[in-house]
Deep mutational scan, measured.
Amino acid sequence: TEHYTFHTEEQAQRAAKKFKKQGLPVTIHEKNGKFTLQVN
Results as ranks from 00 to 15, higher is better:
residue 1 T to M: 12
residue 1 T to W: 14
residue 1 T to S: 10
residue 1 T to F: 13
residue 1 T to H: 13
residue 1 T to A: 10
residue 2 E to H: 15
residue 2 E to Q: 14
residue 2 E to C: 15
residue 2 E to W: 15
residue 2 E to L: 15
residue 2 E to A: 13
residue 2 E to F: 14
residue 2 E to R: 15
residue 2 E to T: 13
residue 3 H to C: 15
residue 3 H to D: 07
residue 3 H to A: 10
residue 3 H to M: 13
residue 3 H to F: 14
residue 4 Y to L: 09
residue 4 Y to R: 06
residue 4 Y to I: 06
residue 4 Y to S: 03
residue 5 T to P: 05
residue 5 T to E: 09
residue 5 T to Q: 07
residue 5 T to K: 05
residue 5 T to L: 09
residue 5 T to N: 05
residue 6 F to T: 01
residue 6 F to W: 04
residue 6 F to K: 00
residue 6 F to N: 00
residue 6 F to E: 00
residue 6 F to V: 01
residue 6 F to D: 00
residue 6 F to Y: 10
residue 7 H to V: 09
residue 7 H to T: 11
residue 7 H to A: 14
residue 7 H to E: 14
residue 7 H to W: 11
residue 7 H to Q: 12
residue 8 T to M: 03
residue 8 T to H: 04
residue 8 T to R: 04
residue 8 T to W: 03
residue 8 T to K: 04
residue 8 T to L: 04
residue 8 T to I: 04
residue 8 T to E: 04
residue 9 E to A: 11
residue 9 E to S: 08
residue 9 E to Y: 15
residue 9 E to F: 15
residue 9 E to K: 14
residue 9 E to Q: 11
residue 9 E to T: 05
residue 9 E to G: 04
residue 10 E to G: 07
residue 10 E to L: 09
residue 10 E to P: 05
residue 10 E to W: 12
residue 10 E to N: 06
residue 10 E to Y: 08
residue 10 E to Q: 09
residue 11 Q to E: 14
residue 11 Q to H: 06
residue 11 Q to D: 12
residue 11 Q to G: 07
residue 12 A to W: 02
residue 12 A to P: 00
residue 12 A to V: 05
residue 12 A to T: 02
residue 12 A to R: 01
residue 13 Q to W: 10
residue 13 Q to F: 09
residue 13 Q to K: 12
residue 13 Q to N: 08
residue 13 Q to L: 14
residue 13 Q to D: 04
residue 13 Q to I: 13
residue 13 Q to G: 04
residue 14 R to I: 10
residue 14 R to V: 08
residue 14 R to C: 08
residue 14 R to Y: 07
residue 14 R to E: 13
residue 14 R to W: 07
residue 14 R to L: 10
residue 14 R to N: 09
residue 15 A to Q: 05
residue 15 A to F: 09
residue 15 A to W: 10
residue 15 A to R: 03
residue 15 A to T: 04
residue 15 A to G: 03
residue 15 A to N: 02
residue 16 A to G: 03
residue 16 A to H: 02
residue 16 A to T: 02
residue 17 K to A: 14
residue 17 K to G: 06
residue 17 K to P: 00
residue 17 K to L: 14
residue 17 K to S: 10
residue 17 K to H: 09
residue 17 K to Y: 10
residue 17 K to F: 07
residue 18 K to E: 10
residue 18 K to Q: 09
residue 18 K to V: 10
residue 18 K to N: 07
residue 18 K to L: 11
residue 18 K to D: 06
residue 18 K to S: 07
residue 19 F to L: 09
residue 19 F to D: 00
residue 19 F to V: 02
residue 19 F to W: 07
residue 19 F to T: 00
residue 19 F to M: 06
residue 19 F to R: 01
residue 20 K to S: 08
residue 20 K to N: 06
residue 20 K to H: 08
residue 21 K to E: 14
residue 21 K to A: 14
residue 21 K to M: 13
residue 21 K to P: 02
residue 21 K to N: 10
residue 21 K to Y: 07
residue 22 Q to V: 08
residue 22 Q to W: 13
residue 22 Q to A: 12
residue 22 Q to K: 11
residue 22 Q to N: 07
residue 22 Q to C: 15
residue 23 G to K: 03
residue 23 G to W: 03
residue 23 G to S: 03
residue 23 G to P: 01
residue 23 G to Q: 03
residue 23 G to I: 01
residue 23 G to V: 01
residue 23 G to R: 04
residue 23 G to Y: 03
residue 23 G to M: 03
residue 23 G to H: 04
residue 24 L to P: 01
residue 24 L to S: 04
residue 24 L to V: 10
residue 24 L to Q: 05
residue 25 P to I: 15
residue 25 P to H: 15
residue 25 P to L: 15
residue 25 P to F: 15
residue 25 P to K: 15
residue 25 P to S: 15
residue 25 P to W: 15
residue 25 P to V: 15
residue 26 V to T: 06
residue 26 V to W: 04
residue 26 V to G: 02
residue 26 V to H: 03
residue 26 V to L: 04
residue 27 T to Y: 08
residue 27 T to I: 10
residue 27 T to M: 08
residue 27 T to F: 09
residue 27 T to D: 05
residue 27 T to L: 07
residue 27 T to C: 10
residue 28 I to G: 00
residue 28 I to M: 05
residue 28 I to A: 01
residue 28 I to P: 01
residue 28 I to Q: 02
residue 29 H to Y: 14
residue 29 H to S: 11
residue 30 E to V: 10
residue 30 E to P: 05
residue 30 E to D: 05
residue 30 E to R: 09
residue 30 E to L: 09
residue 30 E to H: 10
residue 30 E to Q: 09
residue 30 E to Y: 14
residue 31 K to E: 13
residue 31 K to V: 13
residue 31 K to F: 13
residue 31 K to N: 11
residue 31 K to M: 11
residue 31 K to Q: 11
residue 32 N to F: 06
residue 32 N to D: 12
residue 32 N to R: 04
residue 32 N to S: 05
residue 32 N to G: 07
residue 32 N to P: 00
residue 32 N to W: 04
residue 33 G to P: 01
residue 33 G to Q: 03
residue 33 G to C: 06
residue 33 G to K: 03
residue 33 G to T: 01
residue 33 G to F: 02
residue 34 K to R: 10
residue 34 K to L: 12
residue 34 K to Y: 12
residue 34 K to W: 10
residue 34 K to D: 04
residue 34 K to H: 10
residue 35 F to W: 15
residue 35 F to N: 01
residue 35 F to L: 03
residue 35 F to M: 02
residue 35 F to S: 01
residue 35 F to P: 01
residue 35 F to R: 02
residue 36 T to K: 05
residue 36 T to P: 01
residue 37 L to M: 05
residue 37 L to E: 00
residue 37 L to Y: 02
residue 37 L to H: 02
residue 37 L to R: 01
residue 37 L to K: 01
residue 38 Q to H: 13
residue 38 Q to F: 14
residue 38 Q to L: 13
residue 38 Q to G: 04
residue 38 Q to I: 15
residue 38 Q to T: 15
residue 39 V to R: 02
residue 39 V to Y: 05
residue 39 V to E: 02
residue 39 V to D: 02
residue 39 V to L: 09
residue 39 V to I: 12
residue 40 N to F: 13
residue 40 N to M: 12
residue 40 N to A: 11
residue 40 N to S: 11
